[in-house]
Amino acid sequence: MEIVMAFVVGIIFMAATYLMLSKSLLRIIIGTGLLSHGTHLLVLTMGGLKNGAAPLLGEHAAQYNDPLPQALILTAIVIAFGVTSFFLVLAYRAYQELGTDNMDRLRGTKINE
């Protein structure tokens, strides 16, 4: 299963990268959202899949799934949410103020030559 997941994660990363390289701000935000999904799955896969029971002591199992990646991912999910929502509002405000969401026109430097 890990090998399948490796390819799934690869595809998600690919799509995310492609979206992030496009010009529309909304697509870039969707790309970052996708990227965080891919990362979470990647971290989970790296810890090994289906090694045992869910990491709850109440299960009284001999073997548990690795709890550490899960803890990390839990943190990451929340942070990704924070970042995505910040980014969304930023995009919304930028569009309101500047009237465009085209990245080619939202250039950082003021070089008009």
Binding site: G10, I11, T17, L21, M46
Partner: peptide, 14 residues
């Protein structure tokens, strides 16, 4: 670039 990123991530995961 996207395909490259995807491939590298897959390779690392594997």
């Amino acid at each position: 670039i996207s395909i490259g990123v995807g491939a590298i991530v897959t390779a690392i995961a594997l």
